[in-house]
Computed example of a mutant assay.
Amino acid sequence: MKSDETLLSIIDYLGDVDGAGVTEIAAHLNLAKSTVHDHLTSMGEHGFIVKRDHEYQLGLEFFNVGQSVRNRFDIYRATEPVIDSLYDQTEEMVWLFTHENGRVMCIDGFAGNTNIDANSLIGSWAYMHCNSSGKAILSQLPDSEVEAIIDNHGLPAQTSNTITDSDELFTELERIREQGYALNLGEDLEGIHAVGVPLVFEGEVKGALSIAGPAHRVDLDRCENELAEMLFAARNDIELNLAYT
């Protein structure tokens, strides 16, 4: 078990930096250099680590595994053709999220003509309580599961608009269930608004689809009317795709 934890800590560290040597990794993780070297050598033999200019970096085998994992999600395959269509209609960012272990991950999307790098967001984790897709998913989960997520991850404030009170969150989730969509009005990032809808198929919460953009373009009225209606229509297409996947 300790060896597994050591291996994962090395992977996590290399995922945060743009390459590092054995001495740096060992010092940062408080490990023996021989231990670090042995793990790096083993991972290198399997393509998970490469050495460039005397530094070790994560290898492309991680990308291969990640692609394989994502392709197993039927919601990804069913939503992929819908995302481009939504962007063409809105010219705003479109994101697909799914949930695991109490958080959401962006597994596909399109940033369009913005300064946001879509590649940096795809594969990234987010808290559920301050994300429109996350709240949309939470609204479809049993209260006991939502409570467990709060106990495990808390309700940290990302901005001054983030919901940090559990009672307020449950009230918000009830409102989402009634109206069918979730809002994020600068709760995750200042100046960014988003609206998301849950994607449920045969009783299973598969994920959520959201449209996001600058607050001056994606204002409350547009979220609650034009964009929500587009998301409802897109969800119908996705459900049809899932039925024939």
Score class of each variant (00 low, 15 high):
V69L: 09
I10L: 05
L141N: 00
T6Q: 15
C223I: 08
H54G: 10
L173Q: 01
F201G: 03
N152H: 11
C223D: 03
Q179W: 02
A78P: 05
T159W: 01
D151Q: 04
F232E: 12
P198K: 00
A243H: 03
S34E: 15
N71G: 07
S160G: 01
H46K: 12
H37V: 13
K51S: 12
S85V: 14
I75Y: 01
G66R: 09
L141P: 00
A78Y: 03
T245C: 11
L220W: 03
N101G: 06
L183I: 13
D88C: 02
L141I: 06
M128P: 00
N64G: 14
K206N: 11
F110V: 13
A157R: 07
I211Y: 02
L189H: 12
G203Y: 00
S9I: 08
V36T: 09
N30R: 08
I137D: 04
F73T: 10
G123A: 12
G213M: 03
E204L: 01
D221V: 14
Y13F: 08
Y13G: 04
K51L: 10
G196L: 06
V218G: 07
V197P: 02
D4H: 12
E226I: 14
E100P: 00
P156N: 01
I122T: 13
P198M: 00
G191E: 09
I25P: 05
W95S: 11
I192C: 08
I176D: 01
V17M: 08
A233N: 14
